[in-house]
Design a binder for these strands. Structure first.
Lengths: 245, 245
DNA sequence: AAATATTTGTCCGTATGTATC
DNA sequence: TGATACATACGGACAAATATT
């Protein structure tokens, strides 16, 4: 007698109320849950799942691609279909595209404002979660920013400090929140800083040195493990620009 | 001579760095954006898009299903592929399921925490943006919440105040930020409050009356156009639960 | 290092179901 | 009712990437 054990995919050719690929999508998700698959674990192969579920490879792939785009799995040729660590990238970009298109400059402002509110709102949790290694990493990133600025000064080119500086800036902020106990918050921060890279290209020398100072203050406060100073430094970082306009 | 006009799908057989169906997915999204397609509008048929993009039906369908599951389009046999009003249901449940080792309750906490930070971070902008009509709407929603609570008291059933109460609660908060000048912020708020409907099902009578009080304070402050009181009421709303644990 | 097997990627053809006119 | 247009679903075939022996 065929019993439905904990970990099986049930065939699903009844229940015609929903689209087949959606039922497959749901079925695989509950399969992941029931079997407690974790990031890095593999799903059965496409053909195996086709047989288990009694559907064509085409439909199964529609479901797999849907799982992939929602950040649940990643499929690699020659390897298989792997469970992914949580990643909200597509989730966030959908969100971004869900409102009527504005100018890019406006979207950039929206993001800057949100980043300000989020980062300031999570200062306490960030401070509590940062490890020694994190703080050392922040020091390194600060050093990278300084190096970029020097290189620029010697080269003589007035603007266009380039991607490396912006990357270090983004990495600095991502590191600040990397160990926070709210993974959703970290996803959002990561996404917002990824978006930014398209813009932070040209800056004046003054802006560069101000940016460095802002991050120096943050780093020093953390090095001293001084929460109040950290809070002030974060406020300085975001408010010095914000209230200028 | 073939010029690339504003609204066309470009063939994309170069750029082998990403999976084909992902490039199709992105291409269709920018097509929607460029042509400013709105909910209810139709995309070209599958076959037409296959020809335009130079891809097989199979790959195109993988992209379409991904667009469907991310809430961007809905395809119906005999009709075509329609642009949808943004709907985050599948994303919500994706979020829910993509935290492997963590409970639903934890995801709920993440969202509550984010909502707290965002709403408190935008109190000033919300206050500035609210119109007379908005405030009247808030009054109506508050009235609805009261009505739900009364009905519950008379019915005698101890728990399960039901969806209408939660809907009014969500609508109240969405209204607060509906005219804010940061549309991305509003999208996120709307998104997070949509998620809530999966949870806000059972509550104790005490929690209900506390919820009503919280929203009364907010409404009264706004009716009086008192910013400080509004700020206090919002703080009360979020902190009364937050610091309990 | 090289050959082979495994697994996903991409394409094609065909039949069925469903909505519209 | 019938005809048409469209998405849904199936099956088979070969290519490309990776792993294994």
């Amino acid at each position: 007698m065929e019993t439905t054990q904990k970990g099986n995919l049930r065939t699903l050719h009844n229940l015609k109320d929903q689209k087949l690929y959606i039922r497959v999508y749901d079925e695989i998700r509950t399969y992941i849950e029931k079997n407690q698959l974790k990031p890095g674990d593999k799903l059965p192969t496409e053909m195996e799942m086709c047989q288990m579920l009694g559907v064509s490879r085409n439909v199964l792939r529609e479901a797999i691609k849907s799982l992939e785009i929602t950040g649940i799995v990643a499929s690699k040729p020659g390897v298989g279909i792997l469970i992914r660590d949580f990643n909200a990238d597509y989730f966030m970009s959908s969100l971004l595209h869900s409102f009527p298109a504005q100018s890019d400059r406006q979207v950039e402002q929206y993001i800057e404002e949100l980043r300000r509110v989020l980062e300031l709102g999570f200062v306490d949790k960030a401070f509590a979660s940062l490890t020694e290694e994190d703080i050392d990493m922040l020091g390194e990133l600060l050093e990278q920013m300084r190096a970029c600025a020097q290189k620029q000064e010697h080269s003589g080119k007035p603007l266009q400090i380039g991607a490396p500086f912006a990357r270090a800036d983004a990495a600095f902020h991502k590191t600040l929140f990397s160990h926070i106990d709210n993974k959703l918050m970290f996803s959002i921060i990561r996404f917002f800083w990824a978006y930014d890279k398209y813009y932070k290209e040209q800056t004046t020398p003054d802006a560069v040195s101000l940016t460095i100072e802002k991050h120096e203050r943050i780093y020093m406060a953390l090095k001293a493990r001084d929460f109040t100073a950290f809070q002030d430094a974060m406020q300085f970082h975001f408010n010095v620009d914000y209230y200028k306009k």
